[in-house]
Each structure stands twice: as C-alpha cells, then as structure tokens.
C-alpha cells in the first residue's frame, strides 16, 4: 500500500512540474518590465539593470524557472512586486479560509443530498421522486454566483437574517457554503439515487427482503454500504470543482480565501502572487485527488487489493 502511495506521489511530480512551468513562463512573459514596476519611473537605467540582476531576471527563462522551483521546495515563493509581502505567507493566511468553506460546503451538500438520493431511490417514480430529481436538476443548472446573489437578496437584504459578506463569525459562512454546496448537492443526489437503484436491484437485496428484514435495515445495513463507492466518487470529483466554485462564491461574498486572492492579484498584475498561488493550488489539487483515491481503498477492499497488487 505504501508503495502505491509513493508511486502516486511520484506520478504527481511531472504533472506539477509541467503545470508550474507553463504558468511561470506564461505569467513572466506578460508581466512587462518588472524592474520598472518596482522602482518607478524615476529610476535610472543602471538602477533598473541592477534590480534585474538582483531578481535574476537577466538569466534565461529556464534557469529562472529552476531557481524558482528550487526555492519552492524550501517554501519560498518569492515576494510581491507591488508591496513586498511574502507570497507563501499570504497564501498560508488565506488557504484555511478556502478549506473551511470547501469542507462546510461538502458537509452541507452531503447532508442534504445523500438522504435525498436514498429517499428518491426508495420511492422511485412517485411524485416525491420526480420533485426531488427536478429540484436536483435545477440545482445543477443554476450558475452558482447567481445563486449567491439570490441568497444575499433574500436572506441579507430582505430578511436581514444573515450577513452579506466577509468572514465575521459563524453566521457568515452559511450563505457562502450553501452557494458552493448546493450545486454539489444536486450532483451528489443524482449519483446517490442511481447508485442506490443499481444496488437495490441486486439479488441479495431481494433475498434480504424475502427473509423479512425490515426496510430500514435493508437500506442502511445492506444497500448503502455498497452504494457508497460511486457516491464517494461523486463527492471526490466535486472537491476538484470546489476550488472553481469557491472563486465565484468568494467574490460574491467577499470571503477572504485563495480563489479570490489569486483573482485579485491577476487584476493587480502581481505576477509572483499569481504564479505562486496557482502552483500551490495545483499541488493541493493533486494531493486531494490522491486522498480521494485512498478513500476508495478504505471503502472497497477490492480496490485496495488492486492498489496493493500494483504496488
């Protein structure tokens, strides 16, 4: 098993290297004259050249890239060209906020969607089923930033129950989490339902019912466990979408997370912040994907066996 994990980590490395190379080169090609940005327009040509040498900008871009990656391994992502703040520190101070939002959203999504999926599967083709699935369909079709706006309109503007933005206590995470989570919930509900329907058709369920097992035991003891794998897949896939969704939710709710931070830095054309931020995101996503795969192994011994065998 450990071998498998190590192998996966090794496989992550080329992906991260390619991503970071593309981003580094791309951002640096478009950032204009960095020395001038830092020193201002009163600086003389010697001062500008000295700054360029100091920042390593006189070397070919590949060499710059390697230096950058070498520093990355020590946790040094450089400093902002605009206000000199350390990129890694800024990332670290905001990343937990996005994590908080992501987890709350997934929690909310799972709490709503899994029971809904089970219920509609058990009551297939009734009006409850249709209503549930239509609701899920709406959820998937709604752009989440619009949902955020509507939530602010209802709960903040009209009713005044919840804050409309910023991070200021337990109530301020509710609306952003719903915004990010509702779309996820819809996806997960649909997957749960189809997965449960699959499982429920199986012979062993029929046997259990024939043996007189009470319905709730049938669902929770026999069906749900096996249905979990596709559900976990769905949840895991949604995690990758969370970062996407969070950029929008963070913008609508002024939530101080990394999505919005990267985006703000792009408008400020603060290259080191953007480069560092996106590379960190890529690394985080790879780790998340790995963790999701490990969760599969946790649940399904057959998959675990596959991983172990693959070594």
């Amino acid at each position: 098993m450990i071998k498998y994990i190590l192998k996966r980590i090794l496989q992550m490395i080329p992906a991260i290297l390619i991503t970071s190379l593309l981003i580094f080169v791309g951002m640096n090609l478009t950032s204009g004259d960095v020395a001038r940005t830092i020193l201002g327009d009163r600086a003389s040509e010697e001062q500008l050249q000295a700054k360029r040498v100091e920042l390593g900008l006189d070397k070919p871009i590949i060499v710059q890239y390697f230096n950058y990656m070498a520093k990355l391994c020590t946790g040094d992502l450089g400093k902002s060209y605009i206000n000199g703040k350390d990129v890694f520190t800024e990332f670290q101070s905001r990343f937990p906020n996005t994590l908080e939002l992501a987890f709350t959203a997934i929690l909310f999504a799972s709490i709503i969607s899994i029971p809904l999926g089970i219920y509609t599967a058990m009551h297939q083709n009734t009006w409850q089923d249709t209503t549930g699935m239509v609701a899920a369909l709406f959820g998937v079709s709604m752009p989440n930033f619009w949902l955020g706006l509507l939530l602010i309109l209802l709960f903040s503007v009209k009713l005044g129950w919840l804050p409309s933005g910023g991070k200021s206590g337990i109530t301020s995470i509710i609306l952003p989490a719903i915004t990010v989570g509702l779309g996820q919930a819809a996806m997960i509900a649909r997957t749960t339902r189809s997965s449960m329907l699959d499982v429920v058709r199986q012979d062993y369920i029929r046997t259990a019912r024939a043996k007189g097992c009470p319905e709730h035991k049938v669902i929770y003891k026999h069906a749900l466990g096996n249905a979990m794998i596709p559900i976990i897949t769905a949840v895991g896939l949604q995690l990758s979408n969370i970062l996407t969704g969070s950029v929008l939710a963070e913008t609508v709710f002024s939530w101080p997370g990394i999505g919005r931070w990267i985006f703000d830095n792009i408008s400020k054309r603060d290259t080191p912040m953007v480069t560092g931020g996106i590379i960190m995101c890529a690394i985080v996503m790879c780790i998340v994907n790995l963790l999701v795969d490990l969760v599969y192994a946790f649940f399904d011994p057959r998959i675990k066996a596959q991983y172990v065998k693959k070594g």
Binding site: T19, M27, S240, F263, I266, C281, A282, M285, C286
Partner: peptide, 22 residues
Amino acid sequence: MRITDVLYAVPNIMVAVIIVSL
C-alpha cells in the same frame, strides 16, 4: 494523459483566467 491530469489539477476557471490574462 499527464497533460490532461495537469489540466484537471488546475480548476478550469483558473486555466481560463490565465489564458485570458495572457
């Protein structure tokens, strides 16, 4: 497949944002 992995690793909004800002 590595390249598609890379593109999955960065959320598609970020990819779009980078391309548009370039």
